[in-house]
Design a protein around this nucleic acid. Structure first.
Lengths: 336, 336
DNA sequence: CCCGTCGCTGGCAGCGCTGTCTAAAATCAG
DNA sequence: CTGATTTTAGACAGCGCTGCCAGCGACGGG
């Protein structure tokens, strides 16, 4: 570990006080153009980067935020990470990825310890951590800035980026209805995610808007996993008459249902239509490719970081557009 | 942002000097049992966590390492992250996830700037960053500790965790040969990953060990993406006679080939066997589920962090076991 | 022509710890 | 029981920055 240059060495070479170098680094005013240029030259020449630890210790900001997650989906985590990382990087912030167990009894103290230890300037919460009342409360009490990615947004509370799950679910349900389906099953996600409830609500609303009675027996509980999608489909296949379409609350479960259909020799989409939600990598990798809703995961995270670190207070909530992706797992309802 | 407790407050309550608290926190000796207990009590009671920034600045260690990656696969990144994060957490280290572009001209200065800025204690490199000579050289010169995850290991240079790609590729090729396949195509990955070359070598070796001539025409270039797997399969389907098996260098490409087979109405595994490599989430999500090699991605990363932060110098290289997962995309070669 | 103001710059304390040195108490050898 | 050593503890500097305050020359209003 060779010795790294410090701000003092830079100042010596540039022939100014080290305080002036600090000003240049922090883009403060009251530095003449001439001086600024000279300092910047030396900084570039030495490839100098100020010590993050020292700035954190001396200043009131750490330029460090954490993204809290508790999600088993590689796809989801990878993309929110990418989006948040990008915006943080652009704004000169560092991002700590922090997996957590939302059910752990010491969740709040754990988070607080992390905040203290790292002097965090803010927190980005992803589902289901967006829905932990004790956490939100503790954050508010501590006046710690935070954004929530894709929460239910029932109470429009604090900074958040989201998409309209209800509208999206209605859209894909409508797509199915327009194809002639009437017996449409819904595989819901875990209770802990408000998105599951929202998608269920959208499904139900659209059904009723078309005069189709909502049938609770057609709603099967899943947990957003591939396995649970397969199990749900198998349960549905055991019924007569079989529903002609399955709308799964996410792509993993839809892929599970699709695999179950293949296994049971149910032709998709001829005998059964399947729709997912998320447009994860999986949606394009299975056969036939899944009809689904594109959720702008990466953009949601990018906007979240932006909102917290560079946002104006005028628009505390940002809603991003989803998009119905009609692919090959949905088709006209079979006759009869 | 309420005020966090400091080491001085802890020391005041415990009735010792703050230096003694520091000793307890760092598990140094020369502290009486009695004193240690008392201090630990106060620490727990206040939920005190020492300021990472201050320790970094004052000490010679930052308890901070970064995991460098340049990989488009959510699955891969998610799992190395999980493994590395777990071991780092256990050892009291913080992990920075740092995406990078391995082809960028300023890769080395970028990394060095990161190291300086964060006072990093070490680096975990994942493919293809494990194979950048300038990076390795710069790291060596700076005497910065690093581990490489799954490099080629041709020159056994420095710390590394790896698996035997050659042997694994031989194994799965053997499985295909035992099923009666003779015309086995191979879809290779990008040049930048040594794993592609290793897997190709294993494929070739096993072929020749069974007296099957290696046919360069049966090797199609891919880039580890789903698309490239599909393209390779379509190119193969245009040939007569068609190979009876395709061994793809990773699961994404295998899934692409599988989708192409479905599209072209080629029955898998009856008319065509397909094998992948990695045992990613995808392998179980497609239909039929893929025969593949389980690569212990998470364990590789866990071991890497362990090697660098807690390892002994005696075993600088760790090789982890792979496992052949025979699922449903491979079957007896069609007669004819 | 003096004093207030503004733009630019430097001086200095201090953020919360660790490293090192030193002092006091406890332990041990002879 | 004395001198040497070890264990335990505190004092203090200083890591590399930022925040705050002071200084200094230029400029302008009265």
């Amino acid at each position: 570990m060779s010795s790294r240059p410090t701000i003092k060495e830079v100042s010596k070479i540039a022939g100014v006080s080290f305080k002036t170098v600090s000003r240049v680094l922090n883009n403060e005013k009251h530095v003449s153009e001439e001086t600024r240029r000279r300092v910047e030259e030396v900084v570039a020449q030495l490839n100098f980067r100020p010590s993050h630890a020292a700035r954190t210790l001396a200043g009131r900001r750490s330029f460090q935020v954490a993204l809290l997650y508790d999600n088993p989906s590689p796809y989801y985590v990878f993309h929110i990470q990418a989006g948040a990382l990008e915006r943080c990087h652009e704004l000169g912030y560092r991002l700590l990825m922090q997996p957590l167990e939302s059910a752990a009894p010491d969740l709040v103290p754990e988070v607080m310890a992390l905040v203290d230890e790292a002097h965090l300037d803010g927190l980005i919460l992803s589902p289901p951590l967006t829905e932990m009342p004790e956490l939100i409360e503790a954050l508010d009490k501590r006046k710690l800035p935070y954004v929530r990615i894709a929460p239910g947004l029932r109470k429009d509370h604090g900074l958040a980026t989201t998409m309209d799950d209800v509208a999206a679910a209605r859209e894909i349900t409508r797509h199915l209805i327009h194809l002639g389906h009437r017996a449409i099953a819904f595989v819901r996600g875990p209770e802990s995610h408000v998105s599951s409830a929202d998608r269920l609500a959208g499904y139900r609303q659209e059904l009723e808007a078309h005069g189709i009675a909502f049938d609770p027996a057609l709603v099967i509980a899943g947990d957003y996993s591939f396995q649970s999608g397969g199990a749900a489909a198998r349960a549905l296949f055991a019924r007569a008459p079989r529903p002609t379409a399955i709308f799964a609350g996410n792509d993993d479960m839809a892929a599970g249902a699709l695999a179950a259909a293949h296994e049971a020799d149910v032709a998709v989409p001829e005998a059964l239509s399947i729709a997912g939600f998320d447009d994860s990598d999986l949606a394009r990798a299975v056969w036939p490719p899944l009809t689904t809703i594109r959720q702008p995961v990466r953009e949601l995270a990018y906007a979240a970081a932006d909102l917290m670190l560079a946002g104006n207070a005028i628009t505390p909530q940002v809603t991003l557009e989803h998009e119905l992706k009609v692919r090959a797992t949905t088709g006209p309802a079979p006759k009869g």
